[in-house]
Structures are given as structure tokens and as C-alpha cells.
Computed example of a mutant assay.
Amino acid sequence: MEQIRRAVDALMSVLATLAAVGVLAMMVHVCADVIWRQVSGGPLPATVEIVSRYYMVLVAFLPLAWVERRGGMVSVELLEGFMPQGLIRISDVVVALIAVVVYAGLAYASWGIALRNYNTGTFVTALQYAVPVWPTYFLAPLGFALAAVIVLLRGFFIATNRDWHSAGAGE
């Protein structure tokens, strides 16, 4: 189990790093666009399209699993104060299973969309430049699938009464 936890935490570090690189790249790109506008009087080609179709998609979907691993998603614990520990554990496992189904459904649906966009070679035109955007459609199913795996592992750890939050979970 410790090897699984270490592998998950290593993957979460990679996802957090990719998201941070995406934020930094977006910041540098937008700053370069502002500077270029001042110097040349015109925008860098496709800045809006690249920021909205690449950086923001990367930052929105890839860190989902990282947020799930850290326990950062919204949770409602209104009745937990009145429930015995065993019932809380059952409730947490049921919630994890529901989340897995939702994430898996979103991954499946967005995978079909990604394949359609890949097959058609989806692009946007910005200042007479064709910017291919089909690759970014694969980030959503990847993010949802990774989140589903993390929630499934969390549910397994809870169901088997193992500590999910130790070893770098961020709690």
C-alpha cells in the first residue's frame, strides 16, 4: 500500500508542476503580448486563443486529481456529527463511489468529444493563423480519468480502514 501511496503522490507532484508551469507560461505569454502591443502597436498573434484554449484548459483539468488527493473538493458534513464512526466510513465510501462514477462518466463523454475533434483536426483562426486546438480536448478526459482513479483509491483506503491522508497527502 505504501508503494501505491508513493506512486500516487509522485503523480500528484507531476500534475501540480504541470499546472504551475501552465500558469507561469500563461503569465509570461500575456505579459509578452502587453509588451508587444506597446512596442509594435499590435497584438501577438493568437494570444487570446492560446491562453483560453491551451493554458486555461491545462490549469483547469489536469489538477483535478491533485485536488482530490489533497481533499480540497467541496464536502458537506452536516450530519456527520450525529453519526457513529462506522456509518461515517460507509458514507465516505458511498460518496467516493458516486464521485468515481461521475468522473468516469465525464471522462468517457469528453473522450468522445476529444476523438471527434482529433478526427476533424479542429483549429481556430486568429489573425490569419490557424491554431490547432484539437490536442487540448484530450486534457479533460485525462484529468477526469485521473481524478476517478484517485477517488477510487481513496474509497478503497477508507473501506479497508487504511490511512489515506498520511505520506504527503497535504492534510
Rank of each mutant, 00 (worst) to 15 (best):
M1W: 01
I4S: 08
I4H: 13
I4E: 09
R6I: 03
R6F: 08
L11S: 00
L11N: 06
L11M: 04
M12Y: 03
S13N: 02
L15G: 01
A16S: 05
A16P: 06
T17Q: 00
A19G: 15
A20W: 15
L24S: 11
L24H: 09
V28Y: 04
V30T: 13
S40Y: 10
G42I: 12
P45Y: 05
T47E: 12
E49A: 04
S52L: 15
S52W: 05
Y54W: 02
Y54V: 05
M56Y: 08
V57D: 12
A60N: 00
A65W: 02
A65K: 02
R70Q: 14
G71H: 06
G71E: 07
G72D: 01
M73A: 12
S75A: 14
S75L: 11
V76M: 15
E77M: 13
F82Q: 09
F82I: 12
F82L: 08
G86A: 05
S91H: 13
D92T: 06
D92C: 08
V95Q: 01
L97E: 01
L97D: 07
I98W: 14
V102E: 06
V102W: 01
I113Q: 12
L115D: 10
T122A: 15
F123T: 03
V124I: 07
Q128W: 05
Y129T: 04
V131S: 02
P132L: 01
V133D: 05
W134K: 00
W134I: 04
L139C: 03
G143M: 15
F144S: 09
A145V: 07
A147E: 04
A148C: 07
G155Q: 03
G155P: 13
A159D: 09
A159M: 08
R162A: 10
R162V: 04
D163C: 02
